[in-house]
Design a binder for these strands. Structure first.
Length: 219
DNA sequence: TGCCAGGCCGGGT
DNA sequence: ACCCGGCATGGC
């Protein structure tokens, strides 16, 4: 278990961020399948580019597992091209579609009926799905309370001395999940807020800045 | 113009 | 067990 100071700090950081920015409305109103596709397309990619790719799929009425699984890889790659890394991502999406169809008859409802820990384990077996993508799917498509850790999470927390700079994914995730109530809406909002503050104040090449709402947590 | 974005895999040491 | 290059577009 994380020590008490860390738990309090994580709770306080959330309050400050929510106070500063309010709700971020990540992935509202989309179907779970669309959210899943987005989780793969956004790997190391700006969200604006992902939106263009998803718009292409929607325009072609392809946003269903069976339909997209039948689309040839080359055509899929062209459709998702704006999201970058399009040949690898086409393959990764295809693996995911096959997984849903083979194991859950193409039904996300069946997939999310699975025990969450088991489902997470299964998702990680899919080539192209790593821990962040799996947790994004579980949290944002399935409302399962897994905390999503990304580059911003590590950078923001390490700059504010909550974690070591080289802390691994599982450790950081455990910190959040053992410090906060396991509420999917809370985890959803918290992750989105971290990305928000990271974009505005915690870039890779800006060691610290004066106007960051988290400055009060600096030593 | 160059740097950056809501990672992950595979091959080399 | 780590380390690192590759993957690629679009916005600022």
């Amino acid at each position: 278990m994380p020590d008490k100071a860390v738990k309090k700090k994580l709770a306080a950081i959330y309050r400050v961020l929510f106070q500063a920015y309010g709700p971020q409305h990540w992935w509202p109103g989309d179907t779970p399948f669309e959210v899943m596709v987005g989780a793969v397309l956004t790997q190391n990619t700006a969200w604006a580019n992902v939106e263009k790719a998803i718009a292409n799929l929607r325009r072609e009425r392809l946003l269903e597992p069976e339909r997209l699984f039948r689309v040839p890889l080359r055509k899929l790659a062209v459709l998702i091209r704006p999201s970058g890394f399009f040949t690898v991502k086409a393959r990764r999406l295809n693996h995911l579609f096959k997984f849903i169809i083979d194991r859950y008859s193409g039904s996300l409802a069946l997939m999310f009926a699975e025990d969450p820990e088991t489902l997470r384990h299964n998702l990680l077996e899919v080539n192209g799905v790593g821990p962040e993508t799996a947790d994004s799917i579980l949290l944002y498509a399935g409302q399962r309370p897994f905390f999503v850790v990304d580059a911003y999470t590590k950078r923001v927390l390490s700059r504010h001395r909550v974690i070591a700079a080289d802390a691994d994914y599982h450790t950081v995730q455990g910190l959040f999940m053992d410090s906060l109530p396991r509420d999917s809406r809370l985890f959803n909002e918290y992750h989105a807020l971290i990305v928000r503050v990271g974009k505005e104040h915690c870039k890779r090449t800006a060691p610290r800045c004066k106007t960051c709402p988290l400055n009060k947590f600096l030593p």
